[in-house]
Design a protein around this nucleic acid. Structure first.
Lengths: 110, 110
DNA sequence: TTTACATTCAACCAAACGGTTGAATATATT
DNA sequence: AATATATTCAACCGTTTGGTTGAATGTAAA
């Protein structure tokens, strides 16, 4: 199905506090690159690079209007990541349940 | 509470297919480093490094018995990551709901 | 005690990350 | 036409990543 690279990119993009803060910032609607960068101590260029990483992961969409680039949040990749994590969690929950059961059964047979 | 570094490390550790495969492998119980490395095409040393990353993220625990190191999966970091993602998803779901409502209200007032 | 095995450590490498500064490009404004 | 603004591109730098090979360490087995 989905190339694992997609999940790689999503998780990698989320594994940075600056980028998570950028996503947070976009909750109050679209914002231009400069506006997004404003609260951060780093240079505009640095923020621009972070935005590229978020774009590559499709967590952010860019709409160009003249010289302004309006950025907005896209939910799909986070949904997909959540799905993977939930799957894995349930998988493990079952695994651990089974192991627990096996251990209890072993105990009984002593 | 938890330093954001923890979440960073967890997501970073998960953002690699080899490391996700290692976690998968550990579902059938504890395994030694050599056993974990066996299915991969890369060198044992490379896998050893991946294990270090998983350990740093506390997704894997190491139990040394003589020359063997037994690795096992730890659920907590994935739980924490899942929690963060769920929070963020709900946050965004509400945000988008609100925006939708605002747009509908605007329409009515036309 | 020699030999085999399990694992890490150390050094190296190429590529990516996260940041900087300075120049280029494209669009607005005057 | 000149100037200011928004953004990226390009080059650079130090650190990290993901891999390699070879040596060192610690433990088990002959």
């Amino acid at each position: 199905m989905s190339a694992p690279r997609t999940l790689d990119r999503t998780l990698l993009a989320l594994a940075d506090p600056t980028r998570r803060a950028i996503l947070q910032r976009l909750s109050s609607g679209e914002a231009r690159v400069t506006d997004v960068a404003q609260p951060f101590k780093m240079s505009l260029n640095a923020v621009s690079k972070h935005i590229l990483v978020l774009e590559r992961a499709k967590l952010v969409h860019r709409r160009k209007v003249g010289r302004d680039h309006f950025l907005s949040y896209r939910a799909e990749p986070l949904e997909a990541a959540a799905q993977w994590i939930e799957q894995t969690r349930h998988f493990w929950a079952n695994r651990l349940d089974t192991l627990g059961k096996l251990l209890r059964d072993e105990d009984k047979n002593k």
